[in-house]
Amino acid sequence: MNEELLPLIWASFLGLSVALYVVLDGFSLGVGILFPFARDKRTKDTMMRTVLPVWDGNQTWLVGGGAALFAAFPIAFHTLLTALYLPLMVMLLALVLRGAALEFRFKTDNRRPWDIAFAGGAITAAFCQGLVLAAYVQGFGEVAEASAIDGLTLITPFGVFCGISVVTAYAMIGACWLRLKTSGGTRSWASAVITKLVPVVAVSVIAVSLWTPWLVPAIAERWFVWPNIAILSPIPIWTGGLLLALFVTARNLDTADVVPFLLALGVFLLTLTGLAVSIWPYVIPRSLTIWEAAAPANSLMFVLVGVLFVVPVILLYTAHAYYVFRGKVGDNEPGY
């Protein structure tokens, strides 16, 4: 296996981990974001039950992505974590609160603090991920420059906008998950939430898509020159199409409940593809390419063996777990 190909395979694996994390923990966090808006305690209980058996596995993709970055692109791991120190640390603490709330809430009589931890943790974590994303696409140079970044300077209008966009996007996919997993009042509430959120998400996708190239000329050059613009145009067109379809199917309570979720999934994957197009071939935008940052081939090879054999198995038993917990979560199902 040559030195060109290995980093490429690793970058794809990293991309896969990030995508799976964003989609899977996206909906778990989304349920947390919608939590304060639920009508009553029963609905809240049901909402939490939909994610209880799967949230740990979902979140593990964050650890998987981190470990892959550490193993395959150690310099990038160092640079990224140094530059984004504050938002990442706050995000991790928020995830701590969110996770603890999931385990504690049903075991205590006083649920208020855990309600707050669950929703507050989810909202904060999602917002920080938006800040991280905004800073990341803009790039931050080498480690030395990165370490000089003051956490507060990341709170730019663009950063805040991305933060809010991630919160709403997660809320949207979370609502699609609830539509899939619940019945009765909760299901129709979730559908109404989706129809409210789709326009907001559409606007923020458009805004971010225009704002980013305006801030970063290199990204504008990637997208808005011939023939790229023609080759890449399916990405925005399909995103728009899927959002429209999502809006329509969510309103119609007779469509199969899995459809809105799949459409939202498509929207997420397309936007992530767009992101990949914008940053390619860098792992730290415009300062380190995946080849420059790659670990020695020997290390890449050692883990690749594991990736090729173990990851398919992981995907299989993860699918099995989702299959075991398929179907609707009843309002009073006790086993959860």
Binding site: T60, F70, A295, I314
Partner: peptide, 25 residues
Amino acid sequence: GAVVGPLMSYEVMTAFFLEAGFLGI
């Protein structure tokens, strides 16, 4: 990183996913 990173990756792949995949059940 070239030494410790791969070991931690194996931990994630062989242990954390396994735990998470069956903990729910």
